[in-house]
């Protein structure tokens, strides 16, 4: 297939996502209407007391007497041009406030995703190729347990063991503020601070991806082409890793991409437990302060991330499976 076909497909899928994004924007607009002060307060960037006269003046200025539809499109126009309002708390533009918190969350999420995929592939493939063995039962049981463990509980108990009892790992923050490490020591220091958060954040995705890899691999292992490969005299290792794994990986890649927004959501809990200054923590802080513009901004970003991940998963699936043609 040519690049043009792929490009056309991607463009078409993007266009198909537009109604979805519009739907999301409607819901967020509805939530915005529910906030005390509504879009006006959000635009003004202050939660201070206002007199009735001021409100009347502001209503006019923000077009709050316009029909809701007009208001919606005005608001949507603002969102599309980067005007997401200002934080009630700091007065900073919402996008700027969120932007400052992105790197931490991104780092956490990406490390957790990579780690989850690596562990899931190794354990899942191993379990699948020894189906119903002790190892397989252990892996299946462990992933079931992982799926049922609330991450916040896991986090607290990890902190108790590794930070309070063993005093091996730091309990919060991203760097050791007292030590002021530089160079390699700083990297090491940050890695040390990330071990527990990444463990907590990955728990769920490791468990679910392992289950997925295992069942996908078992499915592939029963396929006739693996029998063909065995019948050609290829050793089992080659059969499983060269013929089996690439086929099993196709659906797994899709699921791994879809795990991205899940991890992003999970970061709320993780960042709260470990006091990390990421977007998730910002969301909880803003919730405490009732800083609605920031809350809605993060919500919008998260929703767009879900849509984009879905899109990416679709496109990747098509790229990886040669049977899929873009018509």
């Amino acid at each position: 297939m040519g690049h043009r076909a792929v490009t056309a497909y991607v463009i078409r899928r993007c266009l198909q996502a537009i109604p979805l994004l519009l739907g999301i924007s409607v819901i967020i607009f509805v939530l915005l209407q529910m906030t005390p002060g509504g879009p006006m307060a959000a635009g003004e960037g202050a939660a201070t007391q206002v007199s009735p006269e001021q409100i009347a003046r502001l209503r006019g200025r923000y077009g709050l007497d316009d029909p809701l539809v007009v208001q919606y499109f005005n608001w949507l126009g603002g969102v599309l041009t980067g005007d997401w309002g200002s934080s009630f708390d700091t007065g900073r533009p919402v996008l700027e406030a969120i932007g400052a918190r992105v790197p931490v969350t991104l780092q956490l999420t990406v490390v957790a995703l990579v780690l989850s995929v690596l562990i899931a592939v190794v354990v899942g493939v191993f379990a699948a190729s020894r189906q119903n063995s002790l190892v397989d039962h252990a892996a299946t049981g462990a992933s079931f347990i992982g799926l049922s463990t609330p991450s916040f509980w896991f986090g607290i108990m990890l902190l108790y063991v590794f930070s309070f009892q063993l005093r091996l790992l730091p309990s919060s923050g991203l760097t050791d503020l007292r030590a002021r490490h530089t160079g390699f020591a700083a990297v090491l220091d940050q890695a040390e601070h990330l071990i527990l958060p990444v463990a907590v954040l990955s728990l769920m995705s490791v468990a679910s991806l392992t289950r997925y890899v295992r069942s996908s691999m078992i499915d592939v292992l029963g396929q006739d082409y693996l029998r063909t490969a065995r019948g050609s005299g290829l050793p089992e290792r080659t059969v499983v890793l060269r013929h089996g794994l690439p086929n099993a990986a196709i659906p797994v890649v899709t699921v791994a991409v879809l795990a991205l927004p899940e991890l992003f959501l999970g970061a709320v809990i993780t960042e709260t437990i470990f006091g990390l200054p990421g977007m998730g923590r910002l969301f909880v802080e803003s919730a405490d302060l009732r800083d609605y513009p920031v809350l809605l901004g993060i919500l919008l970003i998260a929703a767009v991330l879900v849509v984009v991940s879905n899109l990416l998963a679709d496109v990747l699936y098509g790229r990886l499976d040669p049977r899929i043609t873009y018509v």
């Binding site: 979805l20 739907g23 409607v26 927004p261 992003f264 909880v284 929703a303």
Partner: peptide
């Protein structure tokens, strides 16, 4: 079904938090 898609796309924990504080 499109409405279902929209609800699927909204990160539930965030919206639940938002609704509860509202």
């Amino acid at each position: 079904m499109r409405v279902v898609d929209v609800f699927y796309s909204l990160p539930s924990l965030f919206v639940v938090i938002l609704l509860v504080i509202l």
